[in-house]
Design a protein around this nucleic acid. Structure first.
Lengths: 229, 229
DNA sequence: TCAAAAGTGTTCTCAATACACCCATGA
DNA sequence: TCATGGGTGTATTGAGAACACTTTTGA
């Protein structure tokens, strides 16, 4: 006996809003150039159908790995998109997930091989279905979260300078920040460690490199210092 | 040709975490006494399968109306629960939604007729599947949101006193608040209007009644005063 | 020597907190 | 008249915002 036999079933998809940060200090979005139907030759987020033997989050981890080779990425659920007519072809519910990654050459190569590309946040093209809405909703969410949680470290290399970190936050907030206040606030979190090296690629004087203190961050989080939204 | 024919399909459910606030100044959760299989005689959240012709949010509005008679309720998506083994019987993805409502006698009667009941937040029984997890996640979320958004008004009658509103916030935060500071902060939002009436049911002196200024609230929200998380 | 980015300190304002007494009234 | 809950004001603290100059060094 199937108790649920008269219930409707749905295709369930995940769509990933993947933000990348590169040396050019601009926030980018990963978009996919569709080579097959449906929506051949259009742009979309990267996504996939959820398979019966995986959770929604498993599915998003799977496709993120496929397109970028990355695992253990900062990725969170945004919300579900389920309007009856959101996909005119098929009744499909999508769970949007946003992720933040640091872009390097390996990733760039893989992304290209997969037929995807990075586009600038200030200049996002028309995407299929409700994907532009998903991007806008994610941007809002990330702005909110960075107010309470030092989130940007996922997007930077292991060693980074404070001016680089500031550039990242400016890209996320889309406005300029005061360098003195920014430095003060970031250091007050107490989760970055100053190194003895300098990065001289962007100035003659050179800027000190820092690293993220994962241990301290974990301890802070666990001791009730709750950033999470 | 069905492009998606080889893709898996899922039962999709909504489960509603409905918080109610009553004259006894305690926050309550609406739970359902299951009279049929699966999980006959267990307690669960109220929920339903999403139907092919409705969105997830439509489904939650539908069942909230069925159990409480209410429409236009403050209800938000929490997140999806999709572990492969979350429901041992069937592969089902659930989207949890939380809602805040004010309890009155009409609602109490309807809730009882439907085989549901209110239980105190401090003393939530074992619920089926991952429903206890959903409740805990909602409580955290609501606590977060009330920090930035004057949310509690949904839970009070049209006319209310400041001490009542404070009792509600104390129920949500599960701690005592200072009456002077609370009053100052609430009034500083500028979204409640003092009336000429007093409520004398809880004290001899009586407390002034206030009403929520929906117009002003909407204007504030629209003019970029973004409370939303 | 100078252009260009890195680094530093102080003041001001505002919001959050802590805290104690008077008021009005029905019983 | 008094017990009960309603209502008010002030001082303190800390975080965030505004703001200008010095340092370093390769070109």
């Amino acid at each position: 006996m199937d108790l649920y036999r008269d219930k409707d079933k749905f295709y369930v998809a995940v769509d990933c809003i993947i933000f990348g940060f590169d040396d050019d200090e601009k926030l980018k979005l990963l978009v996919f150039n569709r080579k097959i139907d449906p929506f051949k030759k259009s742009l979309s987020l990267i996504g996939s159908f959820v398979q019966i033997g995986e959770s929604v989050s498993d599915a998003s981890i799977r496709i993120l790995k496929e397109f970028t080779g990355l695992q253990n990425v900062y990725m969170k659920e945004l919300k579900t998109y389920s309007s009856v007519d959101r996909d005119p072809g098929y009744r499909c519910i999508s769970v949007a997930q946003y992720a933040l990654i640091r872009v390097n050459d390996t990733i760039k190569t893989l992304v290209n091989q997969k037929g995807a590309q990075w586009c600038e946040i200030e200049d996002i093209p028309k995407l299929i279905l409700d994907h532009n809405e998903m991007v806008n909703d994610s941007l809002k969410r990330i702005e909110q979260i960075t107010k309470f949680k030092p989130i940007g470290f996922e997007l930077l290399p292991k060693k980074f300078t404070i001016p680089k970190l500031q550039a990242l936050y400016e890209a996320i907030y889309r406005r300029k920040l005061d360098p003195r206040n920014f430095r003060k606030k970031i250091l007050s979190f107490g989760v970055i460690i100053k190194l003895d090296e300098k990065d001289k690629t962007t100035s003659k004087k050179g800027a000190f490199l820092y690293k993220f203190d994962h241990k301290k961050y974990t301890i802070l989080q666990e001791s009730g210092y709750n950033f999470e939204v």
